[in-house]
Amino acid sequence: MLLALLQEAETHGPNSPFEPEFGLIFWTLAVFAVLYWVLQKYAWPAIVGATEERERKIARQLEEAERMNAESQAALDEHKRLLAGAKEDARALIGEAKTVAEKEREGLLAKTRQEQEQILERAKREIEAELGKAIAELRRGAVDLSLAAASRLIDANLDDAANRKLVVEYLDSLEHSR
């Protein structure tokens, strides 16, 4: 049956649906080209235009959102960087202040110690001087007392100055012998 059909087709010649006719190919291309052009000019923009506009808008908004996102990310990074910098600065400042205070404290301490030593030294010197003075005074008193006691004791008519010299020499000798 199929063979018969095909034979029939052949006898039908150029009008058979089984043979690609050049005329039909030509007309197909021509009609399609015209239809494409006409639709492109008069129909598609009205139907697809709104959608395309919406797509463009969404794409724009997406781009905008991405840009803003990037911007805020950059701002955030900058902020973080600044914050870290500030923390670092504060730490450095505190450290610096600590060292300064430490140095100051040590300086003060040294100065105080020095002053204290000076005061002590002075006091020692003063005490020594006073001691010397007191000893001299004591010696003088002792000489006087001795003289008075001796003059009383011997009641002699001795030259006062000579006696004094005598006693002093004696006392000095005592001193030396000690």
């Binding site: 649906p17 043979e19 006719e21 005329g23 039909l24 190919i25 030509f26 291309l29």
Partner: peptide, 8 residues
């Protein structure tokens, strides 16, 4: 028709 589909 093969001619038309061939064209397409």
């Amino acid at each position: 028709n093969l001619g038309v589909t061939a064209g397409l």
